[in-house]
Structures are given as structure tokens and as C-alpha cells.
């Protein structure tokens, strides 16, 4: 449905905005390398079922997400490594990995590798933006491109919420995917303060600065 398609394209847009920023400005300043590595982990653990993905739409997006994320990490770790400031990227990701790992082991739909890894990936994605938001907090401001990147990334999962509501009412056989929905709502809540600042500042053409 339209919400989901918009969400997936918003996700794709966020990746291209980020790629554009890094290549245009030849710098990855203001971007959290830790968050990018977490996203890589999210894609790998979520798309283990890539080889037998039924719909071409999903297959193409999965390949796009994995390959573009690999490229972003290459750019940040190799090509533009000097512009990477690890002193600003100090969020303790082990807490996020522990959070996702614990929930994946406690409440998977089924104790199979695929399901446990999938649950891990869903929970990890819900908190993977924290190092990036934390870094934003530290620097107090961000380039417009970085703000657009985070906004598009936040919109992707936010749009999945109406998608789930739509599916609930339109597909009689559809059962609510409680893990994805709970994590999706948590994820969107984590972006809420950013969205507010983004909306009030960037929409008025101002530079993105935290109050």
C-alpha cells in the first residue's frame, strides 16, 4: 500500500541523501559511524532470507540497502576516514546490542535462527539512530543535508505505522506483527524531538541548531 511504498522510498532517499552529502562535501563530519555500522548489522541480520525473497520489489530494496550501506561504511572508514571524528561518536553501542539481543532471545516469534536474528534486527533498528542523535546533541548543530538524512530515515519507519493500520483494516487475514509494530513505534518516538526541531527550524530555511 501507499504508506509502505512511501516509507521504503523515504528510506532509500535517506541513503542517497547521505551518500550525496559525503561525496558532495567530501566529508562525513557530523555522521555517526557507529550508527552506520549498526544499520549494516540490521540489514545483514534482517535479510538473511535474501536468497529466497519472493517479491522482486523486496529483493531489489534489500540488495540496494545492503550494497549502499556497505559503500557508505567504506567511504567513512577508508575514503574519507580523516573527516571521521571518533571523539564525537562516543555512544556505548554495547547497550543497544544488549537491548536488541535480550529482546530477540526473550520474545522471538519462534526459536529459529531466522526468527531470532530477525527480531534482533527489528529491535536494533529501533535504537540504531541513537548514536547519531547523541552526536547531534554533542555538536549542537548539523548541516542541512545531515538533518534531511535523519528526517528521511525517521519518516521511513513512521510511515510504516499507517501501513500497519491500513493492513489491519484492509486484510482480513492480517495478524498484527507485534514485534515490528512495537519496535516501529519506539523508533518513531525516538525521532520525535528531532522531528520537532527539524520541522520548526529547517522548514523555515534556518540552519539546524539545537536550542
Amino acid at each position: 500500500n501507499i504508506f509502505r511504498v512511501l516509507g521504503d522510498f523515504s528510506h532509500l532517499a535517506s541513503i542517497f541523501i547521505l551518500l550525496h552529502k559525503i561525496q558532495q562535501l567530501k566529508s562525513c563530519s557530523g555522521i555517526s559511524f557507529k550508527s552506520q555500522v549498526l544499520y549494516m548489522l540490521v540489514y545483514i541480520t534482517r535479510y538473511l532470507d535474501l536468497p529466497w525473497t519472493s517479491s522482486p520489489y523486496n529483493f531489489i530494496f534489500k540488495v540496494l540497502f545492503i550494497s549502499s550501506e556497505l559503500y557508505i561504511i567504506y567511504l567513512m572508514a577508508r575514503a574519507y576516514k580523516p573527516t571521521n571524528d571518533p571523539n564525537l561518536d562516543t555512544f556505548h553501542v554495547e547497550f543497544l546490542l544488549g537491548f536488541a539481543g535480550l529482546l530477540a532471545l526473550l520474545f522471538p516469534y519462534k526459536y529459529t535462527i531466522l526468527e531470532v536474528f530477525w527480531a534482533f534486527s527489528i529491535w536494533l533498528e529501533s535504537v540504531a539512530i541513537l548514536p547519531q542523535l547523541f552526536m547531534l546533541q554533542r555538536t549542537g548543530e548539523a548541516e542541512a543535508m545531515t538533518a534531511h538524512y535523519i528526517a528521511a530515515l525517521g519518516m521511513y519507519r513512521a510511515l510504516y505505522i499507517p501501513n500497519w493500520i491500513y493492513r489491519y483494516f484492509s486484510e482480513p487475514t492480517h495478524k498484527v506483527d507485534t514485534i515490528a509494530v512495537t519496535a516501529g513505534i519506539l523508533q518513531t518516538i525516538l525521532y520525535s524531538d528531532f522531528f520537532w526541531i527539524y520541522y520548526t527550524k529547517v522548514m523555515r530555511g534556518e540552519k539546524f541548531k539545537l536550542p
Binding site: H11, R46, D49, S55, K110, D177, A180
Partner: peptide
């Protein structure tokens, strides 16, 4: 197989 083992969303 149940619904959950067919992941139809990204």
C-alpha cells in the same frame, strides 16, 4: 507455515 515466517515487509 504461520504468517510470521513469511516476512513480507522490509
Amino acid at each position: 507455515k504461520g504468517r510470521y515466517f513469511v516476512k513480507d515487509e522490509l
